[in-house]
Amino acid sequence: MSDKVYILDQITVQPGAVAAYRDAYLLGYAPLARARGMTLEHVRMTPPFEWREGSNTLHFLWSVKNPDGWWEMRIGGVNGRPLDTSGLGNADWWQLFAHLIVSRRRDVFVDYAQEDAV
């Protein structure tokens, strides 16, 4: 079984804002995340169309290579520590685009081997 640790951001966006939020996330947050060792595994959307009248939920699945990678990611994301030349830290980024979202959650996963099931 892999030591990978997965981080899933589930973000429900304001009606009509899904494309704007996806772009902001991929252009703004993703480079900061990659700079501290995170790999973007996939981006998914539900319901599976851009819903103008309702809220889409975006799933951004990230991974780090192991628990050590988790802590490297965390130390790199401490609030107030600029991660690029813009001086924007990760926690600051979430505040900057908070107006586009309805709610968000972040969950942590590890692989759970199917072959171990009895």
Partner: peptide, 26 residues
């Protein structure tokens, strides 16, 4: 202590300033 999943996978969210559940000052 540092590497256990209950630490990074559950409890750390109270401490992580970019997690929506965080409640502790950095």
């Amino acid at each position: 202590y540092r590497m256990h999943p209950i630490h990074f996978g559950l409890v750390d969210r109270w401490y992580d300033p970019e997690h929506p559940d965080h409640i502790l000052d950095a």
